[in-house]
Amino acid sequence: MARNSPAPQESFNDVLAWLDADREKAAVMYVQLRHDLAKIFQWNRCIDPEGLTDEVFDRVAKKVRYLIHTFEGDPRLFFYGVARNLIKEVPKKMRTQVSLEDVDLGAAPIKDSRNETAELRDDCLQLCLKELSSERRELILAYYSREKQAKIDHRTEMARQLGISVETLRVKAHRIRSKLEQCMERCLNSKSPRED
């Protein structure tokens, strides 16, 4: 999405200050909020979630000096409100259906702008697995070692043995997998940079 007019640096600083008085905490919140808003745009089937996220920050930045004194509550909810308005404004994805063949992950590798092969992903996986502690590696391995119906019973048993709820186990596995996925993305980016 083409941005109307990017916010100046001073406004960006004000946005950070509004998120949290501690600049480091504010920076972390900023990054997280950007990620979350992009996700929300994606869930709402919007084209260019990243561009829309930029637009949200630009719009908020323009009002931030006023908002600091007037808005009550969690500032993140204001960002979300702006995002909701944007969702109503922008067109949804033109292409609401993707042919199954296009993403059939069991079939031959799909061509895209990156030259990523299964071997490269395996290499990255191996590298990233080394960054996990053995305990985490084994947990995620066990968590994803079963499929379909068997995985439900298996995860219930795992949770019982670990003395935690299935929900807690699920979140634990999710955190590890997220780290693993992020690491793999970084690894793939470094080994097969975008051609476009």
Partner: peptide, 27 residues
């Protein structure tokens, strides 16, 4: 799911990464 999670190159990549991890876990 495909329209929401496999529409862009980044989403497809994430699916491939997920598949790689699952395949690893499934041997």
């Amino acid at each position: 799911f495909l329209s929401n999670y496999a529409g862009t190159a980044d989403q497809k990549r994430r699916l491939r990464i997920s598949k790689t991890i699952k395949d690893w876990a499934n041997g």
